[in-house]
Design a protein around this nucleic acid. Structure first.
Lengths: 149, 149
DNA sequence: CTTCTTGCAAATCATTTGCAGGGCG
DNA sequence: CGCCCTGCAAATGATTTGCAAGAAG
């Protein structure tokens, strides 16, 4: 489904800024971008957009279920194409974002919530650590390992 | 252990603002408060504190492991006494915060992270929904409620 | 044509920081 | 007494909003 169809389907007018934002997310899978990341990518393609407009576009696409808004640190939000339930792994070294889905965890979430009398609507689950690449590049303490470069 | 001992133990000077903040958290278990909540409670007891100082106190106590900083929505942080690993349940209706700990989930987190090559350091896990009290007061099945995103 | 969109600039809001006077150890 | 703390006011920085000019359907 193309971006213009997605927009029409949810009742939004088809405009340049909206199409461009969708195009950026569809150019690569599992992209997680901040508003500023998106704007930078647009500028690299000589597409100028007001930050205010960009935030409005993101808000719309999020409300309509096309994008998903993630808050990893408290300072800024990241957006990704909404593609079902999954959680995130964030590398504290390089900032890369990975995804994972674990049915066992999902099941326990539902059970736990129910046990506390909650009717669940959403959740946020993020693991922070160091990815293998980052761990390989600086290994404090352990025997000297020379960085390959 | 009293507040003054806690402070001395981690090498902080014993001052009025710090003691008062600790006292507020120790007055009741499982308290989750924003900086503003804390300040309001202090004012109710005729203790005035500068917001800047309060934030600095909170930052110190958090760094030293006495408090824990939670980010539930992206707009503001909440603080609680640090008391081991646990996750949160937030009611979208009344804002109440409950806690839960599930060893099965913890285990799967470790396994999952390892499978992705990550060395875990922290995590953030929050479930959002409606608590039993809130469900009882609204009419279930009526118009769709919109969870604020 | 009418309504939805955009851009620009100004406004928010929680949190942070520069500075100078004060207080703990 | 020296360095750590505090209060005040101004600065930040991501996100939002008011308003008037432009497009989409």
């Amino acid at each position: 489904m193309r971006g213009s169809e997605k927009l029409t389907k949810v009742g939004l007018k088809v405009t340049g800024p909206r199409l461009k934002v969708l195009q950026i997310f569809e150019a690569q899978e599992h992209l997680h971008l901040t508003a500023d990341d998106i704007r930078r990518r647009m500028l690299e393609q000589d597409v100028r957009i007001s930050l205010a407009t960009l935030y409005r576009v993101l808000a719309h696409l999020t409300e309509l279920g096309i994008l998903h808004r993630c808050i990893f640190d408290g300072d800024r939000a990241m957006y990704e194409l909404d593609h079902g339930i999954h959680d995130h792994l964030i590398c504290l070294g390089c900032g890369r974002v990975d995804e994972f889905a674990d049915e066992t965890i999902e099941k326990r979430k539902r059970i736990t919530a129910q046990a506390s009398g909650y009717a669940l609507t959403t959740h946020r689950h993020t693991l922070f650590g160091y990815c293998s690449a980052c761990r390989a590049s600086y290994q404090p303490g352990a025997a000297a390992r020379r960085p390959r470069s």
